[in-house]
Design a protein around this nucleic acid. Structure first.
Lengths: 367, 367
DNA sequence: CAGGGTCGGTTTTACGTATAACGTTGACGC
DNA sequence: GCGTCAACGTTATACGTAAAACCGACCCTG
């Protein structure tokens, strides 16, 4: 039934190739010599095409259960794994997506990446990173570092100001932290930022705070605009609540410290609560308070955003909003996979939660 | 000279394929329809093989300068880029390496990754990450998440206790932060940890410190063993210098705080300087000091290791040893590339430098 | 002038997979 | 008993590249 001996010459050649192709490093270096679908076919007594069908899970009405099982067990026996290069070549795809984030050294994005990479690993796709060398800010040429072909793009709105360059490549794009109504993206994934800020406001209001300062980040992106708007809306209905907005500060501890020093030493009634756009700014605000001889939270409360590890490294530990960074990455990757499969995906919104720690407390009486 | 019309049917089929293969997402979606080496060959009036030679930069004595230039300009004209899937298939390689690090959320490793990814990008290779889900600690099955074929591995000694599992795959391995004399790795890349610790010791000695505590990390890996040894050796020749070693603490701020509290409140003469294995431990030590009513650096000096962004986020800012994390990643990637090219690479040692900030100061007199 | 080398290319082939196109075998209705 | 159809597989082919094998022409050398 199965022609057997005729192909042995071909196999021998394969062995020779294996020996020559792998340079012997440091003396010993075994050639992997992986099994191909043809090897599996031979072992299972079927044709190569059948193996492809079974391994690709496309055999529903085309291969009998018995043969399918034979193929699977032969594959297991030989340790067969599909050659991804050959598969990609045949399918004309890349199994590679580009993740555009401002900076990996920002823990939030490192965690977004970790989440995306985990899902990508499950799906057998690779994640290329566009490492913006300059930190937070628009990436000039997202393709500069990724000359390789791509299947799709996941981008943070903090790294790209316009999708024009990305769309020019004709690639589907999933946006993170961006306006869900943006029609440019194939899908969007956002933590529920507005809700987070509402929780912060409710927390501080319940502690008796009425004079707020909003320590804003200087990044012009959806996620920060939402913070500002949500805070303003949450305080609108409280009769005696007031909020001043500092001039925007760069996303660094030191910029946060400088901005906080200014607002805390400004003339007039001092705010009793500093609502910061990010944990790094909040850490800076705590430093500022200490330098001015103020105690946190006795004299002034401080809240952050993100819940980075930094939040518990500083003293006092920060009250902050925990953003599901890993989940953002995971959802982004899944959304892109869906789009690539032709299933259009909509806008996902992920829940967030307030973590109350030591940097917030009751408002000082009559201060 | 070049047969021209005969192949047009083939090309037409290609166009049809392009239309069918790319699912139309959200209405408009242009098919990329990339140029192949054969298209370039036709445009330049040469054979496909010649294009391959020229693009692969292997034409030194095999193709005339005139033709090579013709090929290059035709390629530029058509926007030709090599199809990596086809290339990989032909060469039997993967252009993918695995980076095994304890955790991306550890800023040090995020920076190592960033460096490696940058070099990898230049070389057109992808970097797969083994994301150890449990934080610092040995990775059980480095291949579990990376079922794809690999060309090589870069691993931190903090993530793998033994190379056995990696070597079993028959892959070349570059080790980071590991014993350079280890014969198992094809190459090693290390920051000059010993020198860093010597600089710390010299700095503190010059400030008059004589009673030291070494706040050690509980990770059993080369990089931490070297810290301990180098500190001991640096103090050996100083007559009245004494160093106590705390029981090892996990690499977290909180563990550092707990260990520091113990050593600072132990009976007997209190150490005037806390030498910590990592910035996170140092941050914890500062918290501990404050809780015990001690001032840093007036009552006790604290030093860290790594120079993470955390070092300047806490108050006071940490005196620490700056480790060239990005450079470690870059060197690791280059070393692996060298090994893969058959050029064996040795042990690289990268310079480090002490950054003196506010957490270290003159030893308290007679304390 | 024969024999060999070198230069500058081309032809051909194989990498391993997915899938369109094409048999083969029976069962079944009429 | 014959056409039809479905179920089950197989054959053949193309994806785009790299490189081995081949080949003509020209040059040198004895």
């Amino acid at each position: 039934m199965v022609t057997d001996g005729e192909q042995s010459g071909e196999r021998n050649r394969g062995a020779v190739r294996g020996g020559g192709r792998w340079p012997t490093v440091r003396g010993t270096h075994a050639a992997p010599a992986r099994a191909t679908s043809r090897d599996v076919a031979r072992a299972a007594g079927v044709s190569q095409a059948t193996v492809s069908l079974v391994m690709g899970d496309k055999w529903r009405g085309r291969v009998s259960e018995a043969r399918a099982e034979a193929v699977r067990s032969a594959a297991r026996e030989l340790g067969y794994r599909r050659n991804l290069a050959a598969r990609d070549l045949r399918l004309g795809r890349t199994r590679t997506v580009l993740l555009v984030v401002p900076a990996l050294t920002n823990e939030f994005f490192a965690r977004v990446y970790a989440g995306a990479a985990r899902v990508a690993g499950e799906q057998g796709v690779g994640v290329l990173l566009y490492p913006s060398p300059e930190g937070i800010g628009p990436a000039r040429d997202p393709f500069a570092s990724a000359r390789a072909a791509l299947d799709g793009v996941i981008a943070s709105s903090m790294a790209v100001d316009s999708l024009a360059a990305l769309r020019a490549g004709g690639l589907p794009v999933v946006m993170l932290d961006s306006d869900p109504r943006s029609a440019e993206a194939a899908a969007t994934v956002n933590p529920d930022i507005a809700d987070g800020m509402r929780q912060v406001a409710a927390h501080l209001l319940s502690l008796g705070h009425r004079r707020f300062a909003h320590l804003a980040a200087d990044v012009d992106s959806w996620t920060f605009r939402v913070r500002a708007r949500a805070l303003a809306e949450a305080l609108r209905d409280v009769p005696d609540a007031r909020v001043v907005r500092t001039e925007p500060a760069a996303l660094h501890v030191d910029a946060g410290r400088a901005a906080a020093e200014r607002v805390l030493s400004a003339p007039g009634a001092r705010p009793t609560a500093l609502v910061c756009d990010d944990d790094m700014l909040a850490a800076g605000a705590c430093k500022a308070a200490r330098r001015l001889g103020l105690r946190v939270p006795d004299d002034v409360s401080v809240t952050g955003f993100a819940d980075l590890s930094l939040a518990t490294a500083v003293d006092p530990e920060l009250t902050t909003v925990r953003l599901p960074a890993e989940a953002v990455g995971e959802a982004g990757m899944r959304a892109l996979a869906a789009v690539l499969d032709g299933r259009p995906d909509g806008a996902a919104e992920l829940p967030v939660s307030l973590v109350a720690r030591d940097s917030s407390g009751p408002a000082a009486r009559g201060a």
